[in-house]
Amino acid sequence: MFSILEKCFKKSIWVYHTNASACNGCDIEIINALTPFYDAERFGIKLVGSPRHADALLVTGAVSRQVCPRLKTLYKSVPEPKLVFAIGSCATGGGIWFDSYNLVGGVDKVIPVNFYIPGCPPRPEAILFGVAVALGLVDKKVVAEYLKEKGFPELVHERPVAESLWAK
């Protein structure tokens, strides 16, 4: 996957931004990434007016019931090869409303996502970092952390006692 991306996206990618029922915080940070201090346009990234001109889709917000079919249509209208970025905690995992009655809970439940940029809202630097990771300019930094207390008997059979109190 990375090698195809490296060949296709060596130069600038054009993005189409869409808000699938977000609070607008992440959307402003995306626009902020285009303003003079962070200036995504020096990498050739620009916001386009039509999904048919775009290489990448920036999606924010936990998808609501009303937006869900329209988001699928939007995804189909972006031509291949395409990248999908889920920006913000709401898009990555549903955020604070992952189990609301009117929301699906995360963009990857509706369309396949290539890159996640968590944060509430993520700084414009974090968004630029995410796009740079996608383009192969820098390496990703975050890894899963696993810590365990030492000196005690190992956990052999993983039998949870009760259902996890905090649902996923």
């Binding site: 189409y16 808000n19 386009v48 329209r70």
Partner: peptide, 10 residues
Amino acid sequence: GPFYPVLEEP
């Protein structure tokens, strides 16, 4: 609508 190119709420 519902999706516009310049930001925002659908």
